Computed example of a mutant assay.
Amino acid sequence: MIPSPVPVVPPPYHSPEREKLQAQARRFAADRVLPIANELDPVKGEIPRSLLAEMAELGYFGITVPAEHGGLGLGAFEYCMVAEELARAWMSVASIIARAQGAGTDVADEARRNDLLRRSARGEWIGAIALSEPDAGSDLAGVATRAERDGDEYVLTGRKRWTGNAKAADFIQVLVRTADPGPDEPRSAGLATLLVEKERDGFPPGITGRPIDKIGYHGFVTWDLEFDGLRVPVANRVGERGFAETQQWLNIARVHTAARAVGLARAAVEDCIVYLQQRVQFDHPIGDFQAVRFKLATMAARVEQARAFYQHVAHLIDLGRPCEREAAMVKLMATEMAAEVTGDGIQLHGGNGYTTEHQVERHWRDARLTTIFEGTSEIQMKIVADRLLPRSPLG
């Protein structure tokens, strides 16, 4: 059971249209996503195709796709707002929508690009992003997967790790090295993104994969991929600015992660509200005890704080403002908050929190990951510090 949300003063970014979209996503998460999560997460099951179809019908794969291409034509704010609601039920469902939203459509041919945008909005173009490698995770400038030009094709050789949804996807967007940097160029020079088109639930010749067994973040399979002579048309090169575009994408991804973290932390708070009224000790519901009440109050306050911050940064993105520092800040603050608040949720459940009988353990497992992917908390600290305090020439 999910308790009714506590009434609050409408935030400055409130509008009737956003309120309607949020209410719809909240109902969908509670009525459709949460029961499926409770059934499939314990057995590491995948999101059913039927649920993806329902999400497509609601427009969740095209929130940021322009209306002329069949999307909702909205911004990062609405995208993150919906993600929070979905993550409250199952984080993987909030994550799968990031693998559409026009991803894998920025090809040179305009007619093809428009067709892919329409497919993305309909949930028929859901992909996977292959950035990290065994020796290039936080240091993406160190990507070593090669793409050698051979006529009208690139030939890919290398290995990618942490590629979620790779086998089930319609495409894999792969960060590769097409050339080595020159002596006066940054290490990221020579990087490009290629679009690998594929059939769902399989890999084309030239790709093999091994599933990575995770402690959480179930709902789709995460893969370790090997590329061995995979041929990709030159026309499938995505964008023109290489690594700079990857960094820009990561800004939105980090705010999206902050929103997912807020959804997970909110889930812990709401679950605790129910549990603290049901669990009786010393002839009282444990929610009567001040130490417990104050812990819950602090948890709820931290969730509200993080939500206000991610909404602000999403608003800046929609205004077109450069906000790499702010995106790193909110990702750092919201995800660390979520890991701590969901941990507090386990504590308030006592011994029952350390079982799989309550949802709070799932919230904690998934929240713990948010401090790692899209750049660890330490990487976010480095980004923020480097923009606040330039290093001295002697440093």
Rank of each mutant, 00 (worst) to 15 (best):
T145M: 04
T178G: 15
R325E: 08
D150A: 15
Q311T: 03
R161P: 00
G70A: 04
N352R: 05
V269A: 14
H349S: 15
P393F: 08
I212S: 05
H218D: 11
A83R: 14
R260S: 15
G206Q: 01
P205H: 03
R254F: 00
G209D: 02
E357L: 11
G151S: 02
L175N: 09
T298V: 14
K198G: 01
R362P: 11
N165Y: 14
L194A: 06
K295C: 15
T105Y: 07
T257S: 05
G263W: 05
M1H: 15
D115K: 11
G123T: 11
G164F: 04
L319Y: 07
P10G: 01
I372Y: 03
D283A: 13
R161W: 09
V6I: 11
A253Y: 06
G137M: 14
L194G: 04
L74C: 13
R387G: 02
A339P: 06
L264Y: 13
I379S: 06
A301N: 07
T371D: 01
N165H: 15
G351N: 09
T222C: 10
I212H: 01
E185R: 03
L86C: 06
P285H: 10
S4L: 11
E357W: 06
R321C: 04
M329D: 09
L175R: 05
G345F: 09
G345T: 12
A327N: 03
Q247K: 12
H363M: 14
I126K: 10
A29H: 13
T157S: 15
L319S: 05
A53M: 10
R118S: 10
S4H: 05
G239Y: 10
H358S: 02
Y79R: 14
G350Y: 03
D224V: 11
A253L: 14
T370Y: 01
L51M: 04
T64Y: 08
S50Q: 09
D115W: 03
V143Q: 13
G190P: 02
S15V: 06
V292F: 14
D109M: 02
D271W: 10
N38M: 11
P10F: 04
I96P: 08
E124T: 12
R177I: 03
W125V: 03
P11V: 05
T145K: 02
N165L: 12
A130Q: 04
R187E: 12
M333G: 07
V221N: 06
T178E: 07
A111K: 04
F227Q: 04
H256R: 12
R18K: 07
R231F: 00
E357P: 01
K44T: 03
V360G: 09
V143M: 08
A334V: 02
E336H: 15
T355C: 06
P390F: 15
R177C: 05
R279I: 05
R118P: 01
M337P: 12
T298S: 14
T356Q: 01
P11I: 03
T163D: 01
A147T: 14
R177T: 07
V107C: 00
Q101V: 03
A130C: 01
R27D: 03
